[in-house]
Amino acid sequence: MKKIKAALLSYGMSGKVFQAPFLELHPGFELLGSWERSKKLIQEDYPHVKSYATIDEVLNSEAELVVVNTPIDTHFEYAKRVLEAGKHAIVEKAFTATLAEAEELAALAKAKGLKLAVFQNRRWDSDLKTVRQILLDGVLGEIVEAEFHFDRYNPLLSPKVHKETVNSGSGVLKDLGPHIIDQALYLFGLPKSVFADIRTTRENSVVDDWIDIVLFYPEIRVRLKAGFFVREANPAYVVHGKKGSFLKYRGDIQEDELKLMKKPNLTDWGTEPLDKEGFLHTEIDGRIMHGKIPTLQGNYYDFFDGVYHAIANDTEEPVTAQDGVNVMRIIDAAIQSNAEKRVVEL
């Protein structure tokens, strides 16, 4: 198996929790190291790798793939430099701060014949995989509406300064929003129009921290919500069809396990506890089905495996640059809708 040399542009939470463990696990990648500005931590976890002092060191290294996992407002600048250096890229969500930036990066990667993937790892959550299978099985009949939540109870401001200061990448719309927006587009495609209500609810907050977005399809309505004052969780996924309904509370364990420094594997990784199973109430062949449904296994490894094959075998990226552009189209439309208090056509 061809080894693809990879490097990170940051070893904060994203690099430590979501990126490095899977690059190390996959036999097709060789983790070279990470750009570290102040704290030098990566060698504590991976003694064989390098801590790069500057981005130029990364770009001049042997790395063939660079993960742009820095603050959102830097994604465009750094991803553009990575592509111009002739290297493939994974860019964390939100892909960019604006739609124009996303379109420029997608065009640049295409012009240079490079692979550009957006790190929408939540497509490989156990929750979303199960919802998708329910839709593929058609057991709900024609879908009428869906509602996705990414809620938390956390009234305190983040200690991460870039998340709580006004900049082109701050706010929950571009932090948690891309997860549920991408999931909606993954399952239902691009809508015809968008309506959004965007608010600031936490004391002393200067960035948006509550969103309510409605995606209008010809026959379906999809509602996306995220906020920081949900002490009693709503179901993360609610889908209603003309034959039945499916409800699923958020139960994917991967992030929590990774934060505990547990190493991912290819056997039982991403297996939810049974008490998190979703609830299906529908009619199948004249028989009423009313009960819990086993949850599919999640594993972010599959994203990295898709990136590997995209580079090694010239297949399509698991989440394409165009997917990232489409999410930014929704975000731009949501900002316009909130400002103008109207439905915005795409």
Rank of each mutant, 00 (worst) to 15 (best):
M13Q: 08
D182I: 02
D256N: 11
I288K: 14
A7V: 04
A102K: 04
V144R: 13
P27N: 13
P318K: 01
A312K: 09
G15K: 09
D212L: 14
P159C: 06
L9A: 01
L136Q: 15
Q19F: 13
F148Q: 06
R122L: 09
L41P: 00
G270W: 12
Q322D: 13
F119W: 12
G141N: 05
Y308F: 10
N167Q: 10
E36D: 12
S38D: 04
P273T: 12
P21L: 10
N234F: 11
D56P: 04
A226T: 10
V91I: 14
A100K: 15
H26F: 08
T54M: 05
S245G: 06
Y46G: 04
P27C: 04
K292Y: 14
K50P: 00
V207G: 00
G227N: 15
T130M: 04
E145R: 12
W35N: 03
W35L: 11
F303R: 03
G251D: 08
T200Y: 08
R329G: 05
F195M: 10
K39L: 13
V131P: 03
F22C: 01
A102N: 04
V58I: 14
S126W: 10
E77W: 12
K276P: 01
R37I: 12
N338P: 00
G291I: 03
F303H: 06
V230W: 08
M328R: 01
N338H: 13
T96L: 11
A334S: 14
L59H: 02
M289I: 15
L23G: 02
A226H: 05
P218S: 00
I211S: 06
